[in-house]
Amino acid sequence: MKAKRIDASNDALLDAASPVWAGAEGESVSMAPTPLMLVKEVSPFLALSQDHGAVTSLRAAALHNGGMLAIRLQWAAPKHDRIVDLDSFVDGAAVMFPVVRGAPAATMGARGKPTNAWYWKANTPAPYEVVAEGFASVQRLAGRSDLKAAAHYRDGQWNLVLGRSLGKADGLVKLEAGGSTKIAFAVWSGGNSERSGRKSFSGEFVDFEILK
């Protein structure tokens, strides 16, 4: 996947419906249920989950304006953006990057091979970053980036833009124009009680270039 540079304001980038996004090369990403055998160690109960991975495809696109990188995700889903009862969950999405080369996406990294992900939940105004060296060591990090999210639900589809300044790192993945990294995606269908490892996942990392 490639993030082209265009001349647009941050606000325009953070608007999924903005015409600027017409210039992005969107990709259709095929999504699949997380293989829960992988989490048996950390939660044998979670590993019992079935019927997760309700979202089977996702459209992803990326742009930057030299200052901010924006990733737009769009997927069709019934809307679940409120916790209405104790057994209700909300829609969510994440993009993940390896912090060091060779970090496995399927397990969210491994000891010594951390990953960094951007999380968005439909009931939470601000997205957040996590680092992880595997499922059981997901750590939310506050105050380390300017990650922003703008989400709109329209006509049975979520339109989400996640954006963060280029260049800075502070333990998170370093994203710079002219560089390349890898990327993976996850989506949670709240209506299907998806959370944690119960999710749709794009599979192993794919290349991600941030064009100059």
Binding site: V39, V42, S43, P44, F45, L46, F135, A136, S137, V138, S196, G197
Partner: peptide, 10 residues
């Protein structure tokens, strides 16, 4: 504790 076993975040 089953709760402890189940918690994926430790």
């Amino acid at each position: 504790p089953a709760c402890l076993e189940a918690c994926p975040t430790g």
